[in-house]
């Protein structure tokens, strides 16, 4: 009699490695970067520098968490840097005019979310590509900030507000703790909630999501609300750290944020997002920026090096880790 045997299930470890190849590779890359910059200048690994690094990485991380949702739907938000500038400027103006900081903080996050809703409406319901809508936002929103401030930096009077950017809790900078909280919430929402599942489904196959009865357009709009709100939160942190508001805040930050998300392994094609990867990606971007300064490399070269490293990292990631792994 012929024996019909079942194919053995592959080892769990191998499945795990394949499923998490991107996260593992960015983790290795981060460690390598840290080692490299430590060799160049041993100040890099000092607690003071590391805490400073975390403080500076926080705004990028906060926005990157929300951007992970946006990119998982297959979209993009280029306007986050400009939203930061606008919120930053408006917050400084209101605080200078004597508004209470808790009210200002809440209002600013609502402002960011409203801008996100506005852009999300055009993307989800009017079907204009996210790239176009948020590119228009990138230009127009910073324009509003410039008009409001006249291009000048606005000083924020000393108050408890500034501790949001400068304070520490148990020795850890408050912005870093805030970033950690945002990242944990983002991780849980993306991996374990019905909403997170819907975001993935819309990104993987919008029509399939619609056919099984998911409110695809509403989900698509919602992610831009988060990115707008997160940008506003980041803007508050930056304003509190610098003690001033300026329409020139966070120029080019959208690129750092998108680079962090993509470095982390979230697919630009949509459908697959990893929050852990995003955290590692945001740290990597900050480590590179910080390390190059400590290595006394001319600031003009920093952008060139950052861009090259991002390209090389993503190229290696695709060449080495996608081979034989998942199909996308």
């Amino acid at each position: 009699m012929t024996l019909y045997t079942e194919r053995q299930q592959g080892s769990r470890l191998q499945d795990f490695l394949e499923a998490n190849a991107h996260v593992l590779s960015i983790a290795l890359f981060l460690v390598a970067c840290c080692a490299f910059f430590t060799v160049l200048n041993d100040v890099f690994l000092s607690p003071g520098n590391l805490l400073n690094l975390l403080r500076q990485a926080a705004p990028t991380l906060i926005v990157a968490v929300a951007m992970t949702f946006v990119i998982t739907t297959g979209g993009i938000d280029l306007s986050v840097g400009s939203i930061i500038a606008l919120v930053n400027a408006v917050a400084a103006i209101l605080l200078r005019d004597g508004w209470d900081w808790p009210i200002v903080s809440v209002l600013m996050i609502v402002l960011g979310a409203l801008i996100g809703t506005f852009q999300g409406y055009f993307i989800a319901y009017q079907r204009i590509p996210a790239f176009i809508v948020t590119l228009a936002g990138l230009s127009a929103i910073r324009g509003v900030a410039l008009v409001l401030t006249g291009g000048f930096s606005i000083l924020i009077p000393p108050s408890l507000f500034l501790t949001l950017g400068r304070g520490t809790l148990l020795g850890i900078p408050l912005p870093a703790l805030l970033g950690l909280v945002v990242a944990v919430v983002g991780y849980v929402v993306l991996t374990s909630t019905v909403y997170g599942r819907r975001v993935c489904a819309v990104g993987a196959n919008t029509e399939a999501a619609r056919r099984v009865g998911m409110p695809a357009k509403r989900i698509l709009l919602s992610v831009y609300v988060w990115s707008g709100g997160a940008a506003a939160l980041a803007a508050l942190v930056i304003a509190a750290r610098l003690g001033s508001g300026s329409s020139n805040a966070a120029v080019g930050m959208e690129l750092d944020v998108i680079a962090a998300v993509v470095l982390g392994g979230t697919s630009l094609a949509g459908g697959r997002g990893t929050m852990l990867g995003t955290v590692l990606g945001a740290l990597t971007i900050s480590v590179i920026g910080n390390g190059l300064i400590l290595a006394h490399i001319d600031a003009f070269y920093t952008q060139i090096v950052t861009g090259s490293i991002i390209l090389i990292a993503i190229w290696l990631n695709m060449r080495i880790f996608d081979r034989g792994g998942g199909k996308r």
Binding site: C200, A204, N205, G271, R272
Partner: peptide, 19 residues
């Protein structure tokens, strides 16, 4: 109408997830 990046169980329950 399947979502490639979601697992088998998730696709079977797509749109009527157990929660």
């Amino acid at each position: 109408s399947l979502c490639d990046t979601i697992d088998v169980a998730g696709n079977l329950y797509l749109g009527r997830e157990l929660r």
